[in-house]
Amino acid sequence: MRKELKGLVIFFGLIFLFPLLVKSPYYIGVLVFWGIYSIITLGLTILMGYAGQISLGQAGFFAVGAYTSGILTTRFGLPPWLGILAGLGLSLLLSLFLALPSLKLKGHYLAMATLGFGEIVHVVLNAWVGVTGGPSGFGEIPALSFLGWKLDSEMSFFYFTWGWVFLFFLFSLSLLKSPYGRALRSLHAEERIPLSLGVNVYFYKVFAFLWAAFYASFAGSLYAHFMTFLSPSSFTLILSILLVLMIVVGGLGNLWGALLGAGILTFLPEILRTFEDFEMLIYGTFLILVMIFLPKGLVSLRRGKVATGD
């Protein structure tokens, strides 16, 4: 715990100092996206890394969060906070509906079911033109404000987003340290072991599913109010796969891995953008090399220092 606290202080200290040292709105903007993706991966790593369930539909919950708060604030003039809460509520409801029957599925069948969910959300965003704006999307989503402070600059949104990343990190950390967390971790192993220990496997799987959906939905709302424009092309299967890549490249079942993976895969396209046609070659090679040489993800480079996780 001590070591972790030290890591936390150093990491978030550096992050919070960043905008003061590097004043470029470009880098701050990219870091906002890092923060937003980190929130999703911090939730997803609980589901995938601890509960051992795969989800290829996380973009669906991200979209539900984004669209719900975007539509409610833009069309109906609701305050953003209500919009975010409504998005969270809807996501939890949907994830419950999906989780209850889905978690009987295993492996690729579960992957297919969650993928199907994500695709259905995407189709609905495209086809329900009257509400979602269809493929053309909609804009002019109002900015968030926090304690009377209007979050319309990159800098203010940065602190707001990373403040939440910090809180979500602490939530996840305390979850893992609690008895619930220990039960959750045991799921990753053979299902029969936790069963024989009296753990209600089904309950914990559903719980992890809801947890991940909650994080994704919240991140979606942040995304909507930061971009102020939404269209279905931002919420495709490619994003769901990218999120899985983030936690696996970072290090599965490790909160630091979730942060690191989100960071690397947010920055990589920025660095590679000048290569244009060759970007895919480099990106693909990068993934293959990481998986061959660091199958436990990039966190395994510094296993000794950070001890979160198993």
Binding site: D277, E279, M280, L281, Y283, G284, L287, I288
Partner: peptide
Amino acid sequence: GCSIFLKG
């Protein structure tokens, strides 16, 4: 990774 590479 291979899929992305081959597309490239």
